[in-house]
């Protein structure tokens, strides 16, 4: 089996025409193959998220992770960039949508592309994956434990975002949701409310909540890592993207 792949830092055109950094990983094949936009978690465009991006390439997808903190901290280390971005109140929603649009456009421009692009995000990126799926023409979306899709951030938080439930009717692709049953953000009640609303709207979606897992159970470098949930979650992700992004 030929399994060569290439992974590199590239520049893409994001929101407002800004040039932003991104990490592109892809199998060296003629195609046609699907694409995946990876939205990093709040701690940033870190080595673990770039490893996730390579994992999608190893599974046969062209994958790209835009550095959402490129503007606040060009060239800075991921932890310094994350500190600067959080001090500024996080990534504005419209900028996120523009950056994901730029990343998806880049994937579709590859000669190997089949034109299909999915999005996946973790932690704050889970909410942002849902936002992107309600705002852009994508073929599949995965929300990994994104908070504040249903509930409003606490008033003392500096996070300047709003819930997204009122946009659920604009969800334009199938959604896979992977959650920890012991997570408080999003809580099981919040997940259940989103599930209920998407069912009312007849939006194709598939939610799984793992017992014994809380927030960030995919994060291999954190004590929150739960191998059983993560291994099963990865299987579900690849089955889901296989259905919606291949061919």
């Amino acid at each position: 089996m030929y399994d060569a792949m290439q992974a590199e830092t590239v520049t893409i055109t994001g929101h407002g025409g800004d040039e932003i950094e991104a990490y592109l990983a892809r199998p060296l094949v003629v195609g046609p193959i699907g694409g995946v936009v990876v939205i990093h978690h709040m701690p940033g465009y870190d080595p673990e998220t770039r490893e996730i991006t390579r994992r999608f390439a190893a599974q046969g997808y062209a994958a790209i992770c835009p550095n959402l903190y490129s503007r606040e901290a060009p060239g800075a280390s991921p932890d310094d960039a994350a500190a600067a971005a959080r001090a500024a109140g996080g990534v504005p929603d419209d900028r996120l949508v523009g950056d994901v649009a730029g990343a998806a456009k880049m994937l579709r421009s590859l000669s190997s592309s089949n034109g299909k692009v999915g999005v996946i995000g973790y932690c704050s990126g889970g909410r942002q994956a849902f936002l992107a799926a309600c705002s852009l023409p994508l073929q599949a979306a995965v929300d990994c434990y994104g908070a504040f899709v249903v509930n409003t951030p606490p008033p003392e938080s500096a996070l300047r975002i709003s819930p997204l439930l009122d946009r659920a009717d604009q969800l334009a692709c199938p959604l896979l949701g992977l959650f920890g049953a012991e997570d408080g953000y999003p809580s099981p009640e919040e997940v259940a409310e989103l599930d209920r609303r998407l069912s009312e709207l007849a939006k194709p979606h598939e939610f799984h909540s793992y017992e014994g897992a809380g927030h960030a159970f995919f994060a291999v470098n954190r004590p929150s890592y739960r191998p059983e949930a993560a291994v099963d979650g990865w299987r579900k992700i690849f089955a889901f993207f296989g259905t919606h992004l291949q061919g």
């Binding site: 932690c123 908070a147 003392e156 996070l159």
Partner: peptide, 9 residues
Amino acid sequence: MCTYLTERV
């Protein structure tokens, strides 16, 4: 959760 709780001094 990402709390974004911050005091700036």
